[in-house]
Design a protein around this nucleic acid. Sequence first.
DNA 1: CTTATTGCAAACGGTTTGCAGGATA
DNA 2: TATCCTGCAAACCGTTTGCAATAAG
Lengths: 155, 155
Amino acid sequence: MVDSAWMAERLAAYMKQHRLKETRQRKVIFEIFTECEDHVAVDELLARVQAVMPGIGYTTVYRTLKLFTEAGIAHERRFQDGQTRYEPVEAGEHHDHLICLTCGHIFEFEDELIEARQADVAEAHGLRMVSHRHDIYGECLDPEGCVHRREDPGR
Amino acid sequence: MVDSAWMAERLAAYMKQHRLKETRQRKVIFEIFTECEDHVAVDELLARVQAVMPGIGYTTVYRTLKLFTEAGIAHERRFQDGQTRYEPVEAGEHHDHLICLTCGHIFEFEDELIEARQADVAEAHGLRMVSHRHDIYGECLDPEGCVHRREDPGR
DNA sequence: CTTATTGCAAACGGTTTGCAGGATA
DNA sequence: TATCCTGCAAACCGTTTGCAATAAG
């Protein structure tokens, strides 16, 4: 779950430290961004923001999202489609996904063993792990009894 | 290791089936592509190809790489840098990637422990693992002594 | 001689940047 | 008032497409 209070705090701290200004645009974008649970594409967010503040420019949205990323309250993700998507950073977050090819459901998972092992692999190659991306694709073992069949297959 | 004989065969079969023509350009690109062990970016490959065949257009390289992909002898991969990279398909392949953010080098790895654990994670959620994608990003522990520094850091 | 292919230039889509006017501290 | 921020337009970058000329079958 998104902890918008924590995000607001962290953003405020970052802005103060960098002597940035709190503008109407940034407030609105923040508001809407924190309401987005999933990975929002920029144009998607822009559309939602424009519904509230019609005159806003896409440049501002791009720049603000970049600001959020630098402030540590957003993560940038690029999928195969060439678009950049952003997701709110959550406390104790993990971004490993288990995608069901049968029903489309996306589970999030975290496995300490895998986490630890990744760092080892990096080290074995002379690197310090900074981040990772791990997606597992699978099929329902029991399609009939699948609890997620009716859910919206996240894009 | 790249099995260029097998690749040539598979490509030939695909071309025959689709009534495509064997051109000088395609031969040269194939030659050079099979010599590339790692993940080549298009402009990288273009440079190598142009060293052999100066007049060749980048359009041709793009189209040929797409052809290779359709023929099943190349894999298209997009990492976080926005460039599309291609790698020769190998028999029984399966590559996880370790990307160095300092020098740009891309290592391939396979870890049985992680492999096994992934299947477990899937099963724990009621899925049978079909495939996965796993990229680890890191930084050189010793940037000074990095063996890969001289390589073109795929931006 | 028919059809596929090439290479150029121009189009493209997503993103970034320069700049003058406007808002914030 | 001194900055910082905005929004526009234009630049940009990697990639794709239209097209007339060219090469392969």
